[in-house]
């Protein structure tokens, strides 16, 4: 049973469980913060885009394209190593939070915008014909429908991006992977890595199952 001893060493588990639990808290807190700010910012961008002011639209599309096309780790490293040189000192967790929020915002903007363009012309006309203003139709009629259509892809994207909090280990954020990696080199055992995997499972398996349920639940009926 060398296998068990290597990956499930009881002494190592007992020793590092408290650290891993603290790290889980950090991963969770970062994830929640990223999801909230990413989705809110993405919704604001999609809303602004619907006003069809050309320079503004171009800026939004440029932002969304860049953040969707660039590997997040590249952006994280550029900010982490570059910003101090221009006199901006940011703690490692803030860089991680900022980059992943922006990436989620870019995807959320595209999802909301696709939803807004899918709201039929008739819905807009019905709203405007009853005397509602453009902004009122946008917030009361178009956005709620775009939101519903967007929930399944949004949930999947939010999950994929919050899992990227593991990238924090590269710049020293004390999240699960980072804590497990240093525990692994201290203890000379692979067990902390197993613990990290289990910790992620505890967080994300329920999330993945919930996302399946949401996908079925929000299948839009008209």
């Amino acid at each position: 049973m060398r296998f068990l001893e290597t990956f499930f060493n009881g002494t190592v588990i007992a020793k590092y469980t408290p650290d891993i639990i603290v790290a889980m808290g950090i991963t969770l807190a970062l994830s929640v913060a990223i999801i909230i700010s990413g989705i809110v910012f993405g919704a604001v961008l999609a809303g602004l885009r619907s006003f069809q002011v050309r320079p503004l639209t171009l800026l939004i599309v440029l932002f969304a394209d860049l953040m969707r096309a660039l590997p997040p780790l590249v952006v994280i490293l550029i900010l982490f190593f570059g910003l101090p040189s221009v006199g901006l000192l940011m703690p490692d967790w803030l860089v991680l939070y900022l980059v992943l929020s922006l990436v989620l915002a870019a995807f959320a903007e595209e999802i909301f915008w696709a939803g807004l363009t899918a709201v039929t012309r008739g819905q807009w006309e019905a709203g405007r014909a009853t005397g509602l203003s453009f902004t009122q139709v946008l917030t009361n009629i178009a956005f709620p429908q775009a939101w519903r259509m967007g929930i399944p892809p949004l949930v999947n994207r939010a999950l994929a991006i919050t899992k990227m909090t593991a990238l924090g280990s590269v710049i020293g954020v004390k999240e699960i992977l980072s804590v497990a990696s240093s525990a692994q080199s201290f203890s000379g055992s692979a067990t902390p890595l197993t613990m990290a995997a289990v910790a992620y499972m505890l967080i994300f398996i329920p999330a993945v199952i919930a996302s399946r349920w949401i996908e079925r639940r929000f299948h839009y009926k008209t």
Binding site: Q123, E125, A129, Q145
Partner: peptide, 21 residues
């Protein structure tokens, strides 16, 4: 225009009820 449209009701071929309400 919005205030004027309050005076003019319109019914469409495709109903256009808001499906989320």
């Amino acid at each position: 225009l919005d205030r004027m449209r309050l005076n003019v009701g319109m019914v469409f071929q495709g109903f256009h009820l808001y499906p989320h309400m």
